[in-house]
Amino acid sequence: MRKSKKIRTQKLGRFWNKFFSYAYLMLMSVVIIYPLLITVTSAFRTGNIMAFDLNLSGPWSLNNFTRLFNDTLYGTWYLNTLKVAGITMVIQVAAITLAGYAYSRYRFTGRKQSIKFFLIIQMVPTTAALTAFYVMGLLVGGLNSHWFLTLIYIGGGIPMNTWLMKGYFDTVPLELDESAKLDGAGHLRTFWQIILPLVKPMLAVQALWAFMGPFGEYMLARFLLRTPELYTLATGLQTFINNPRDQRVTLFAAGAILIAIPICSLFFYLQKHFVSGLTAGGTKG
């Protein structure tokens, strides 16, 4: 008698648990999808609207996309961003991979001190050094140029990501290096042919992060780039929407979609490696 009552309350509890779990998930889904759906649908709407709202009644057209490339500098901005992001990605990933490998595999004089240096310097909010960037840019001709911005992007990500990279290298067993050495492989060969292939997932994640950074960064781009022809996507798209009297929201939506689709695809393609990358660096000393 008592046992069946216990089972019944358990069943009831499980029902409520399920009910609230699904209710929560549904609610979250709506909250997430609503603004995104608004953006997506607005991109295909015709006419000039002042603000976003969810309106599924059409009519639909691709007009906004053609206007985007014909009437605005969107294409230029896209190329600028690809250029800056691509260079940032290649140099940053190369630098952090080499340094991360050195810190993981070698015990050299000054290693501990320089690891501490990395840990402390990654706490410095570099973007806040606006005044310094301004003065430096003024003197080396870096204001209103892409190379200076790219340099800052590369440098800003190096300390933290070297640390994560080292953590990931640490998960590769040391026995592999030793047996490679026994077989007569030198430093470069061990690194390039034995260890590097094993950290490919982390390389992919780091590459994606380094690439996504310049797509989303606004403050430095806005601060250093003064002419619209040199804008990156974040600074360019903002001009569509920041003027209250001249809201080109449908153009903004169209431009946003063309950025979000490739980035989202890359993101979900590499997503399964994220967790291992995050926790490997975060927990191992």
Partner: peptide, 10 residues
């Protein structure tokens, strides 16, 4: 997955 500046502007 969607770049933050897009969602913030939206």
């Amino acid at each position: 997955a969607v770049p933050a500046f897009i969602t913030i502007l939206t």
